[in-house]
Amino acid sequence: MPLLKENETVEINNHPIIDLNNEKPEKMSAIIFQKFIKNKLAVVGAIYLLLIIFAAIFADVLAPHDPNYQQLLKKLAPPGKEYLLGADNLGRDTLSRLLYGARVSLIVGFVSVAGSIFIGTAVGAIAGYYGGKIDAFLMRFVDVMISFPSIFLLIILVTMFEPSISTLIFVFAIFGWTGTSRLVRGEFLTLRSREYVLAAKTIGIPSYKIIFAHILPNAMGPIIVSATLGVGGVILAESALSYLGLGIQPPTPSWGNMLQSAQTLPIMLDSWWYPLFPGIAILLTVLAFNFVGDGLRDAFDPKIK
């Protein structure tokens, strides 16, 4: 492989460069979007979620009735003209309560996941970037958090503090970040030795900027996936707690506490529509978050075409 020999002169073109074709090359985000829309389930899930979010935002306009207006004569009314999805045991319109319940479920889901992603990302980024003793300490702390009997603690916490939307958000955020922190740590462990990170260090860019402005944008894919799956998980957990009476307190409707008053056998057998619709809402929404999460994971994965 002969390179240049001694005393050889070489012509170098002063402007050899830029043979970029004029059409704009594809942005990374465009490629990811194209991969995402190839996944049918994920697209259906995304459309469903957009509808649910829309419905939650405009619940006041869309709801045919006041969600808390009781018409005891119409209690457990089957689906019909007045009550499209039937009425509950106190004669309240199920559809209206579902719409307002969507608000509660989504707010708890999104806000607590935002909190847990924030904590998890910060802990994971610092552990992965610095490594060594800091990493060992933080990861042992995560191990402890994970081996806590969290359901039990959750129940203690919500009984100690009045269960409200904000307590629930707080509790889910405090217990939900460990998975994210492990994931982010793993990403940082590999990214920190990339040459562009070394270049940033030789320039003298301070560590906090390298962590958050240089490395973090390259770790966003897995974080977004984990957040999406996380929202589904929180909605499910919130429903379970509310179903047990430890979550959102009536009369504020949430999908979980709508099921709570339906847990007697006669109601389940004779008025199946009353528990059915909140159940379906929870099922479909959690499923949709999972489909979208899986779709995003594949779209971000450079190995999958």
């Binding site: 990374m28 040459e195 562009y196 070394l198 270049a199 030789t202 320039i203 240089h214 944008p217």
Partner: peptide, 15 residues
């Protein structure tokens, strides 16, 4: 004192 790196694909931040 500055450095030029080996891998032209890893030495520039893709983002």
């Amino acid at each position: 004192i500055q450095m030029i790196f080996q891998d032209p694909y890893a030495s520039l931040n893709p983002r």
